[in-house]
Design a binder for these strands. Structure first.
Lengths: 243, 243
DNA sequence: CGCCGATTTGACTCAGATCAAGGTTTGTGG
DNA sequence: CCACAAACCTTGATCTGAGTCAAATCGGCG
């Protein structure tokens, strides 16, 4: 890394109305004049480095967050110490809703790579929602989406085979890439195999073997963290979305 | 069943302020004067019979619901037709948040036995939240709780053995019985073994065998749907909550 | 170059699924 | 009130998907 890259440009705040993630993020569905109100309270703290915690289980919840760049994983911890990753959050996706229940976070949020986030302080949400009906509606939509996501993951963990899980994971990533107007058939995984395995409720070895199988069947092409989807129909048929 | 029991008393609406579930339900944390506003919009439709749908996947979401009596399960359906139960809702517990994302439900809600619910119409929530800050706060808390619940279930499905899952399930029920000031060491399961198995991501036979094992180890006493917890410490140690 | 963590591959094992059968309870119609 | 069917639940025998263990290989970095 060249020293020149470290010049601090973090204070150059990007306004919500100019953010190209706005349709995926807080601003979705809000009117132009509402956005300036939003801008006024949204903060953009220093970027996180790989493995930095955005927040920790047990910590007082101060804000909800939107990923601006990079990728953040959230994971719950059980009484006996094992962990379950409950989400990988891409740019434009929100996290921190777990703090709504009793004011403290119940999971850890960790950057998978250098990542930046926007934060919406909790103590402002109340009055802001009061003033901006668009935000209140969006908050509900966001929470509903989170619940639906979790339900999909429950179905995955409860009912799918390892093969279906990995196919489902790749399809989900692909769809989210498309939402962001990135290539949906070629992307890099930001997380190690270990994290994929954890998220999908299986062993690393199984993930590795399945990647190899998919590759040999010409469904995907894998090169370390780089994925090319060669046959998306096959992937869909694996998870049962027959056309 | 005597005919005399069927006299319709459903129209005798119980106000939120007099409901003994109020501390678990919508009214939690709300002021006395706010409750009368809540009462004005909360509806109590006809009771559901066993296996009746409260709402269906794909239906337009009209309200969120609180169970008043009985028990309602919610389940998601996958593309290829298999189903995952994502929650059993006891009196005082809420459901229907899955409809917030895009206005349509994404799961089925089905009564496990004769059950009654209260409903809070969605089209009223917005204005009501605007007038009652207590409700808005409670809505957030409720959604946070739902998210946290789902995360616990994800951990269960992703990381626990069958034995741990069943123990965890019994402990969760016991804790929720206590919240309701019912006996926490003796209760009836409202759901068939099949549903328990589905919820916990395992086969019916495994549930049955584990009940037998727990019984033989004097941890619980099972008689069909009736459960007595004999050794709650053992249950806790099984799920890893070592003291 | 040499080390360390991430990933892959192979061999073996096992928790829990599936298959098969029998028992029990509940509901229904006569 | 009984007979019969349909659910529901249990138990035993067997099978298998995916976990575990072990070891080799790869890739990046100081």
């Amino acid at each position: 890394m060249s020293k020149f890259k470290e010049i601090n440009i973090d204070h150059l705040k990007l306004s919500c109305s100019e953010c190209n993630l706005r349709e995926l993020c807080f601003p979705h569905g809000m009117k132009e004049e509402e956005l300036s109100n939003l801008d006024a309270v949204v903060d953009q703290p220093k970027p996180l480095h790989k493995n930095d915690f955005l927040y920790r289980d047990g910590e007082r919840a101060m804000a909800i967050y939107a990923v601006r760049s990079g990728c953040v994983k959230t994971m719950t911890e059980s009484a006996n110490g094992d962990e379950q990753i409950v989400g990988f959050h891409l740019p434009g996706e929100l996290l921190g809703l777990d703090g709504f229940a009793d004011g403290s976070h119940t999971c850890n949020a960790i950057a998978l790579e250098t990542s930046s986030v926007c934060e919406l302080p909790l103590d402002q949400i109340e009055s802001l929602c009061h003033r901006l009906p668009g935000l209140q509606k969006q908050m509900r939509r966001i929470m509903g989406k989170e619940v639906n996501n979790d339900h999909k993951l429950l179905l995955l963990l409860g009912k799918m085979t390892a093969e279906e899980r990995l196919a489902s994971f790749l399809l989900s990533l692909s769809a989210r890439m498309e939402e962001r107007h990135w290539k949906d058939n070629e992307f890099n995984l930001t997380m190690p195999r270990q994290d994929i395995a954890n998220y999908l409720g299986m062993a690393v070895e199984t993930v590795s073997r399945l990647f190899a199988t998919f590759q040999s069947e010409k469904i995907i092409d894998v090169d370390r963290r780089h994925i090319s989807i060669l046959d998306i129909k096959r992937l869909r048929s694996i998870v049962g979305e027959c056309e």
